[in-house]
Nucleic acid binder design. Structure first.
Length: 105
DNA sequence: TTAGTGACTGTAG
DNA sequence: GCTACAGCCACTA
């Protein structure tokens, strides 16, 4: 299969270590289109139809806000997944987001 | 084929 | 500090 935009999104997202998070913009920038963060979210949305597991819950917006939660089965699914990895969520926002932030390399 | 849409972000007012 | 707008790329109707 060809190296498409969202194919790279899956690849990068799967590299996110357990208990760490990153932002849509960081992934988009790593791929080469810093302004195409929307596409990242869109790709992750379709990730549920992929055969491989993609930790989409580890990707949030630049403020650490769980904007993607609305695309999970339940509004608290994303929060619970992150908390189960040791990340503290406060009002749908990741506490100490900078400390948990993971930059693609 | 064209138009509309989206899990975002940076800049400008 | 908050609101508005413009780019971003791929998909669906």
């Amino acid at each position: 299969m060809p190296e498409s935009f969202f194919n790279k999104v899956y690849e990068v997202t799967r590299r996110i270590p357990r208990g760490r998070v990153t932002s849509y913009g960081a992934i988009a920038a790593f791929i080469g289109s810093p302004q195409a963060g929307r596409m990242v979210g869109w790709a992750l949305n379709k990730s549920s139809s992929q055969t491989v597991f993609v930790p989409a819950h580890r990707v949030v917006n630049r403020n650490g806000l769980l904007t993607g939660k609305i695309h999970f089965p339940n509004y608290n699914t994303m929060k619970e997944l992150l908390e189960s990895e040791g990340i503290v969520i406060e009002n749908d926002i990741i506490k100490d987001f900078e400390l948990f932030f993971w930059q693609p390399e």
